[in-house]
Amino acid sequence: MLVVNPYLNFNGNTEEAFNFYKSVFGGEFAVVMRFKDGPEASKLAEKDQNKLMHIALPLGPGNMLMGTDALGVEEGGMGLVTMGTNFSLTISCESKEEADRFHAGLSAGQEGGGPMREEFWGDYFGWVKDKFGISWMISFNPNRP
C-alpha cells in the first residue's frame, strides 16, 4: 500500500521539536541519525556534526512524522528554511518502478531535485519540487514490509 507521510525541516532545532512531539503523541523514535554518522561527515563543520540528518516518530500504524536539521547551502544542504513552508511529503513506494513513475510524474516540466538512486541508508530515493512548489521525497526499501 502506498504511504504518504510529512517530513519537516528545521533550522537546527529538530531534536527539540521532536522531543516535544514525542511528549505530545507518545511512542519511541524509530530512527535517530546524526550527520556525523553519514558518509559525508568529514566534510561538515564541527558545529553541524551532531545535528539530526533524519529522525522518525511513529504516529500509529503506517504513519510516521519525520524530520531533519536543514544545513546551509554552503555546508552542502538545502539552505535555511522558512517556517510554514518547511516540509516535504514523503512517498513510500512498493517497488522501484513505482518510485520511478511517481518521480517522473511529479517532476514533469521541472528542473532540479535529486534523481532516483540507491542511498547509503538502504533506500532507493529521490526528491523533486513539483510545478506547484510542493516538495516530494520518494523512496523504496525492499526490506520494509
Score class of each variant (00 low, 15 high):
E118A: 09
E119K: 15
D48L: 08
G105C: 11
P61K: 02
E75G: 05
L57E: 02
A108P: 13
S88L: 11
A56E: 14
G114I: 11
E97L: 07
G60R: 04
F120L: 10
A45V: 03
N50I: 01
G77F: 01
P58H: 03
G67C: 04
M64I: 00
N50Q: 10
Q110V: 00
D48I: 03
K43D: 06
R101L: 14
E94K: 04
A41T: 01
Q49K: 14
G126V: 04
V81R: 04
T68L: 12
Q49V: 09
D37L: 02
K36E: 08
S88F: 08
H54I: 11
T68P: 03
F102D: 09
P58D: 04
M64Q: 03
E97T: 08
E119C: 14
G79Y: 14
L59A: 12
R117G: 10
D48C: 12
E46S: 12
E46L: 09
T68M: 14
L106N: 06
G77K: 01
A104E: 11
I91F: 13
M53E: 08
L89K: 10
F87N: 01
T68R: 06
E119A: 15
G76S: 15
E46D: 12
M66Q: 10
G109K: 07
E74Q: 11
G79K: 13
M78K: 05
G38R: 08
G77R: 02
M53W: 06
C93V: 01
P61F: 00
K129P: 00
E118I: 03
L89H: 05
D69M: 07
P39C: 08
E74N: 13
L65P: 06
S42V: 10
L52G: 10
Y124I: 09
G84Y: 06
D130E: 04
E97M: 08
E75Q: 15
H54G: 04
H54L: 10
P39T: 03
R101Q: 15
L106Q: 03
G60P: 05
E75M: 11
Q110D: 00
E94T: 02
K131C: 02
G114A: 14
G105R: 13
T90Y: 12
L106P: 12
A45H: 13
A108G: 07
S88Y: 03
T68E: 07
I55Q: 12
N86H: 05
V128S: 05
G79A: 11
E97H: 07
L106C: 05
N50V: 06
M78V: 02
L80S: 11
M116I: 07
S95G: 08
P39Q: 10
D48G: 12
F102C: 15
F102P: 14
D100Y: 11
K43S: 12
L71G: 11
K131H: 10
G62W: 00
S95V: 07
K47M: 04
F87C: 03
G38D: 03
G84C: 02
D123R: 08
R117L: 10
A99L: 04
Q110E: 03
L80G: 09
L57K: 00
K47P: 04
G76M: 12
